[in-house]
């Protein structure tokens, strides 16, 4: 029963629960329109940001693109089964990063969870980086500002920014929305393959899938 085995592995450590339950009726908790501040659009200039990673190092998008780098953003929450699917059950993120890290590709994982939400905190995330063998920086975006700017909905939610700072891809990592099985198309790999060989990205936008980003309950 390899299926069960995989699932058990995926379940390990993802049982932390906290926070307040949101209402789920048809009429309650309407969002405030003004709170949606998504700026990022595929085909347009990716909004700049500066975030510190867990080691305190600053990462500024505009500096990377000014240096001719291609930048991958990966929305991250170590306790989300869909993140585990691509970090532990399968090594999608590790392998994709590895294949392109020497080709002017900078990969940054971002955790937009608000303090106290699932999967947050510096120490916890440092441990996750180690456990997941992540060979790239992880930055905390506790205010959710960068996440909202990019319209990051899920973990994972992937963005690829080309050398000119244009958002070239936004969406899912692959084409299988299951929490266990990987798809046969890795959209980020395809986008990076195209961009590193001077071609245009064929699939520029897909629907991301995963757990919701654990933005704070107070809105933004």
């Amino acid at each position: 029963m390899s299926k069960a085995k995989k699932l058990l592995a995926g379940l390990a450590g993802c049982l932390a629960i906290g926070g307040v339950m949101l209402s789920s009726t048809a009429t309650a908790s309407e969002p405030e329109k003004s709170a949606t501040k998504q700026v990022a659009k595929v085909g347009e200039k990716a909004p700049n940001f500066v975030l510190k990673d867990l080691d305190g190092k600053e990462h500024e998008l505009a500096k990377y693109t000014a240096d001719g780098k291609i930048v991958v953003l990966e929305w991250f929450n170590a306790e989300c089964p869909f993140v585990k699917k691509h970090h532990t059950l399968n090594k999608t993120m590790y392998e994709t990063h590895k294949a392109f890290k020497d080709k002017d590709v900078v990969w940054i994982a971002i955790n937009s969870g608000a303090p106290g939400e699932q999967g947050t905190g510096v120490e916890f995330n440092k441990k996750a980086v180690k456990d997941f063998e992540m060979a790239y920086p992880l930055a905390l975006d506790e205010s959710g500002k960068v996440g909202r700017m990019y319209g990051a909905k899920t973990t994972p939610h992937m963005y690829v920014i080309d050398r000119n700072g244009i958002l070239a891809y936004a969406g899912a990592i692959d084409n299988n929305r299951s929490a266990r099985q990987v798809g046969d198309i890795n959209y980020v790999k395809d986008a990076l393959k195209a961009l590193t060989s001077g071609e245009t990205v064929a699939t520029r936008e897909t629907e991301a899938y995963g757990c919701s980003v654990k933005y704070g309950k107070k809105g933004g």
């Binding site: 949101l22 209402s23 789920s24 009726t25 048809a26 908790s29 969002p31 405030e32 329109k33 709170a35 949606t36 998504q38 909202r148 319209g151 909905k153 899920t154 919701s212 980003v213 654990k214 933005y215 704070g216 309950k217 107070k218 809105g219 933004g220």
Partner: peptide, 18 residues
Amino acid sequence: PDRRYAAPGGLVLDHIYE
């Protein structure tokens, strides 16, 4: 289903069963 906002500010919307 029912509607559920998983984040305030209208960023994540799901349709669910409870």
